[in-house]
Design a protein around this nucleic acid. Structure first.
Lengths: 342, 342
DNA sequence: GAAATCACTCAAAGCGCTTTGGAAATGATT
DNA sequence: AATCATTTCCAAAGCGCTTTGAGTGATTTC
């Protein structure tokens, strides 16, 4: 079933049928109703390809997911982000185009997305400091929103980000207030911008208190359970072990908890832990009382915000960049307590 | 830059340029080289929309992800599946179209995907017993592959699945062999086909041994950490507590481990646990010796297989359904041990 | 009663590509 | 030199839609 058939079937021209379906005013309500009824009756939907060829809009948003061996991005956090963004697209009749590409092909993929005109806009994931992709996207003059920020870039662009620096600064200060002095940081990969900012916040808090941060107590790695486990074991096994840990993700924290259990320690008493919680649906942070004291920020919500911002930009044609900075709350759970003298 | 401009630029017709780029034989190698060089030089890629309108193929595969409140599907397992499938699509120059829709709109979405002709095929996720979507997809006559199976359907269709029944049957028998008699099952939602099959396997093993399965020791729920925790606490707190548990996913198992720890028990000694491990990259099952005894099957690999099968079907035009049944290995880890008399 | 307005409707062009059915140029064969 | 096959190229149709610019009849206004 296509426009042509439908219109001959109705005894109308293609123009009228098209206008009726797309809610143009130049069509009487009577015919509009008749046309719409026929469309649903014959299960007619306009062919997207033809439609976007004619209109110049593809009604689709691209997400480019780079993969290396075991990369940051194809992870549970990403899944929740996508779910959030996808909801917004659906509500706005847009499609989501996902390209999973080896990271060396990432640039080519962006070029092609622009050249092939298969999307109206792009969400960029996992920005690094001074990320070259931002210049690339600007030069391709395709609307885009970055999930996160790329420090030190001279250009302005649209982004949605969590205040990671402030978040970790507060977390560290919270632990200092409880009497802790030796803090450990188990961070994400620090060539990622968010991880770098978190470390900055961690260090800022130390500076404010005049406490020296021990480089041996700051590690950075993939956000995986085993990395959390191994890092915690290593740190807690040291002569000068930390009395509190700040952990960059729930997944890592699960490994940290396993390590603490294996070492016969009790979390919240022998060792305090603060995590950053992305509020993943299948990894809730306890029911009533949170298991972990946490800085939290829903990545699902971030996905919605990014998607909505991009759609707004595409619609608005006002290309001044937009920014959303999300603050995190610090929720106290059972994993933190005052420093105990041993 | 488009075909027209490029061809006038080269002093050739659009036909020739198109044929040169698409490796048709009717073009001399000399001109082909010249054309290709010009294309890359001017950063030309054929407009996908126009191309697919002309060819009738969209070079895209659709994935419809239904969401309810906190649904099975938008989960870490899904993320790894998508990553696997996406890799295959990229290698074959296909795009992945993701539709995240409220489950009540799922049928409409499939209808539209077919009507709008925006994809060449579809991967169906999370089949239920007697799933109506299969009939729908057949009636829309669009190529599709199901990840999993829908029991009791009379029609044949293409699928990639894990032998879930056998897998859980073996797991239960393994525990029986260790002397356990009271086994607990912490399963996924049993309106999902895979969960139903797992339960069947669990029950089959009981039948083989002439052991009665206690309904109080079989729970089914969302595959989330807290569900695992609560289920384990409930079961282990009973007067007639199980001495071994079979858990349907790593995420749930993390909650189970937490419950066991909170109750002061030791896994592998006081209580045995076997899990099904989907081999998620960021939740590895230990390094050398697995933490959990597990039946394992990589969902990432399943994603690749589904994608490849679908592409094959689309290409082949031989529409006889294909099937791939993946067997799981039973890997022994530290979470199981012989029954101890208390 | 003629002119102007309004409410609908339509034919046809165009979006950027592929592909059919030739045509022109080249080379080989008689 | 004429014929034929081969290679190389092209004009134009068509994919299914939107949108421009124009036309029709009915209604209102002068």
């Amino acid at each position: 079933m296509n426009l042509k058939k439908l219109s001959t079937l109705l005894g109308l021209s293609q123009t009228t049928v098209s206008r009726a379906l797309n809610d143009y005013p130049e069509v009487s309500e009577a015919t509009r109703a008749r046309v719409k009824a026929a469309a649903t009756a014959h299960n007619y939907t306009a062919n997207t390809r033809a439609k976007s060829l004619a209109t110049g809009r593809s009604m689709a948003i691209g997400h480019v997911i780079p993969i290396s061996t075991r990369h940051e991005i194809v992870n549970p956090i990403f899944a929740d982000f996508i779910a959030g963004a996808g909801e917004v697209y659906s509500r706005n009749n847009h499609d989501m185009l996902l390209s999973v590409v080896p990271d060396k092909d990432e640039e080519r993929t962006y070029r092609e997305l622009a050249g092939k005109a298969s999307v109206d806009g792009v969400i960029m994931h996992g920005p690094r400091p001074n990320d070259p992709r931002i210049k690339l996207l600007k030069s391709l003059s395709i609307p885009f929103v970055v999930h996160g920020r790329a420090s030190d870039g001279d250009t302005d662009y649209s982004w949605v980000d969590v205040n990671n620096r402030r978040s970790f600064e507060r977390a560290a200060n919270f632990l200092f207030d409880l009497g802790h002095v030796r803090l450990g940081l188990i961070n994400g990969l620090e060539f990622m911008d968010f991880a770098r900012r978190r470390k900055d916040g961690f260090l800022d808090a130390h500076r404010q208190r005049g406490i020296a941060a021990d480089p041996a107590l700051m590690v950075s790695g993939e956000m995986a359970e085993d990395v959390g486990y191994q890092s915690a074991r290593d740190m807690l096994g040291r002569a000068e072990a930390p009395t509190a840990l700040i952990v960059s993700s729930m997944i890592m924290a699960i490994g940290v908890r396993r390590a603490i259990g294996d070492m016969g320690l009790k979390m919240g008493r022998d060792i305090s832990v603060i995590i950053h919680d992305d509020v993943l649906s299948y990894l809730p942070n306890g029911a009533d009382i949170p298991i972990f004291t946490a800085t939290k920020s829903s990545v699902h919500h971030a996905g919605q915000l990014c998607a909505q911002m991009l759609l707004d930009i595409i619609r608005a044609k006002d290309q001044t960049p937009r920014h959303t900075l999300l603050e995190t709350g610090l929720t106290v759970g059972e994993s933190t307590g005052p420093l105990r003298q041993r």
